[in-house]
């Protein structure tokens, strides 16, 4: 039996089952379990176990080596809430999420709309926009360190276009280091936003767009009233991904600024690493990790629920 016919057969069985056959239900349903068992064991055994073990460690005062860790209950959590650097990381994360999400969404949608019109060499533009997504931060970070160095190419460019007065050590001062990290992230992930919006716009029925045109809607009105509402699901997905991505941000700030200067680009991820690995406060780092997990879950639930509410209202 070919794979296709087997699948069709399965689908037929499934169809019959859901319409009534109780015996078939019993016989067929559990057949799927062996297929998910490896993933189940892996997820429960590896990921959920690790989460559970991290929660246990978060109640210890432990350097990661001492065979007899000191149990401190919720002591680490209480210290975290009094830790100014922790609050700084939260502040950075919120600002980072808002700025990167808004700009990525705007740019991604703009590129997607433009490339859905009849643009010459569209494929080339698509590739150019998407390439940063596939580049590893480990490769791009040293390049950005060089570009934004005091004698780097960005300052060189500013000087050569008559804006030499704006030249400054971009990653060497607190006021500009975080915006640089945001700019790098936007450069890296706009390609993904673009691809998702490009696909979503492709799902809009041409007849709806034609009807809008016939009703006299111009480009901007069509974008605002037809396209933007039609890609709401994609925007919601991007919001969730961006929010979780902001909470998990590690590679770019760690590789470009090592969380500095003076914690100006410290995020939860880099702070967890600093506490756990560099400073050997493994219990404290574990408590930070649990807080990160809770924040990610809460963020995803809020965005999901808000998205559903809006869908229902519409």
């Amino acid at each position: 039996m070919s794979a296709t016919s087997a699948t069709q057969s399965e689908l037929r069985s499934e169809s019959v089952t859901t319409t009534g056959g109780r015996r078939r239900t019993r016989r067929l349903r559990p057949r799927g379990l062996p297929w998910i068992l490896p993933a189940l064991v892996l997820c429960v055994g590896l990921i959920y176990y690790c989460i559970g073990y991290t929660a246990v460690i978060s109640t210890w005062n432990w350097d990661g080596i001492d065979p007899a860790p000191e149990k401190v209950g919720v002591g680490n959590y209480l210290r975290i809430f009094q830790d100014p650097i922790f609050w700084k990381t939260i502040e950075h994360t919120v600002g980072f999420f808002v700025v990167t999400f808004v700009i990525q969404t705007a740019l991604g949608l703009l590129f997607a709309v433009l490339l859905h019109s009849k643009v010459r060499l569209a494929v080339v533009y698509k590739v150019i926009i998407f390439i940063p997504v596939v580049l590893a931060p480990a490769i791009t970070a040293p390049v950005f360190r060089r570009i934004f160095a005091p004698d780097g190419q960005f300052n060189w460019l500013l000087e050569h276009v008559g804006l030499g007065s704006l030249a400054q050590p971009w990653i060497g001062q607190e006021s500009t280091a975080l915006p640089v990290i945001m700019a790098i992230t936007i450069w890296q992930w706009t390609g993904l936003t673009f691809v998702l919006y490009f696909a979503a716009i492709g799902q809009i029925k041409p007849s709806i767009l034609e009807a809008a045109r016939m009703d006299g809607a111009g480009n901007v009105r069509t974008l605002i009233s037809i396209i933007w509402p039609s890609v709401r699901g994609t925007t919601l997905a991007m919001a969730i991904l961006s929010a979780i991505g902001a909470l998990k941000t590690f590679d770019v700030p760690y590789l470009v600024t090592v969380g500095g200067p003076n914690y100006a680009t410290e995020f939860l991820g880099t702070y967890i690493y600093r506490k756990t690995i560099t400073q050997s406060h493994v219990g404290y780092g574990a408590a930070l990790s649990i807080i990160l997990l809770v924040l990610a879950l809460v963020m995803a639930i809020i965005l999901q629920v808000r998205g559903r509410e809006r869908s229902v209202m519409r």
Binding site: R22, T25, R26, R29, P30, L33, P34, L37, L40, V41, V44, G45, L46, Y49
Partner: peptide
């Protein structure tokens, strides 16, 4: 179904045992 649940529980037990072993 109930029976499915029962079998599922059996498998879950196996998985749990594996997890316990890992733990």
């Amino acid at each position: 179904t109930l029976r499915g649940k029962s079998r599922c529980r059996s498998l879950a037990l196996v998985a749990s045992a594996a997890v316990a072993a890992l733990t």
